[in-house]
């Protein structure tokens, strides 16, 4: 293991930015885990849905193909984020309604939930892969947002989209924090994550809270999906798979169910991954990421900050 010293600082920055995207996705895993004690393996499809729907809306239906600037850029950027967030939230809602709720009604075994989630994830992915949708290859994302160099830190090029990612991710986290601590629904979510039965006895409508949780997690995943598509310039049918697993790892690393843990875990994982690409080799990236996950699970299964939804 010999790390190229010149590359460490730049990778640090790119890892950090990737970490923010992971954190946004990880929020969905973490919140659903908080209330249902269940890992929503279909969250990767929820993430992909946001980016893919914006690809359709802007690229296919609205036909926006050239880079924009000024007010129209701001408006369309906002519109794309809203559309993406709503699409993902909608798919999360659908997932909860169609797959999870019937299982809850029937008191499904734990294994049932996991298998259902995998079914949902693969259903969505391979539906997107069909020729009447995205098809098997990468599809170029409409470049209404001109990705370009903003400035340089430590010799690392930071793009304008990176700035957007960091700003939006921090804004989302603050918003979620406020939502969890200040609002009625947020309190209900926390109550449910503490004690299902007690929450129900206190007059909390479990189903509504669970739906809210899925939808909120979906909103952030959608924003992440759009940003991811803009940054890398394409959408592809299985674009959720790898970021999904990474985000899940991030959630566990920070302490699943813990919102601040998601941010911490996301950033840490982004850093570890990019550092290992420099020090071990990019071709071993997934091995390193998974080894980290296994080590964390074995050595500290509750993650760095511990479990449970906290404000």
């Amino acid at each position: 293991m010999h790390c190229n010293a010149a590359l460490i600082a730049p990778t640090f920055v790119t890892g950090l930015i990737l970490g923010f995207i992971y954190a946004l996705i990880a929020l969905g895993y973490t919140m659903v885990y908080g209330v249902l004690k269940l890992i929503n393996f279909a969250h990767d499809a929820v993430f992909a849905t946001g980016g893919i729907l914006v690809f359709y809306a802007f690229g296919q239906w609205f036909g926006i193909v050239q880079p924009l600037s000024g007010v129209s850029l701001v408006v369309l950027m906002a519109a794309s984020l809203v559309i993406g967030a709503l699409a993902s939230a909608g798919s999360a809602f659908l997932l909860e309604r169609v797959a999870y709720r019937p299982l809850r009604r029937r008191q499904g075994a734990r294994l049932s939930y996991l298998i259902t989630a995998i079914g949902a994830s693969f259903f969505a992915d391979y539906l997107y892969q069909q020729n009447f949708l995205l098809g098997p290859g990468k599809r170029e994302f409409p470049n209404y947002f001109n990705v370009s160099k903003a400035f340089t830190v430590f010799g690392s090029v930071v793009q304008n989209v990176d700035v957007l990612i960091v700003v939006l991710a921090i804004a989302c986290l603050i918003a979620l924090d406020q939502f969890i601590t200040r609002t009625r629904s947020g309190r209900a979510i926390r109550a449910l994550s503490e004690d299902q039965v007690a929450a129900q006895l206190m007059g909390i409508n479990n189903d509504r809270v669970i739906t809210t949780t899925f939808v909120v997690g979906g909103l952030f995943a959608g924003i992440a999906g759009v940003l991811y598509a803009i940054k890398f310039g394409f959408v592809v049918w299985n674009m959720g798979f790898v970021p999904g697993i990474k985000a899940f790892t991030a959630a566990v690393l920070g302490g699943i169910g813990n919102i601040r843990g998601a941010l911490l875990g996301g950033i840490l994982l982004g850093l570890i991954e990019n550092m290992s690409a420099v020090c071990v080799g990019a071709e071993w990236k997934d091995t390193v990421a998974f080894s980290v996950l296994v080590l964390v699970l074995i050595l500290r299964p509750t993650g760095i900050l511990g479990e449970g939804i906290k404000g």
């Binding site: 019937p102 259902t116 079914g119 259903f123 069909q130």
Partner: peptide, 12 residues
């Protein structure tokens, strides 16, 4: 895709 959907239906 179809098996994915079938998994959900079977589980329910």
């Amino acid at each position: 895709a179809i098996f994915g959907a079938v998994l959900i239906i079977v589980m329910i």
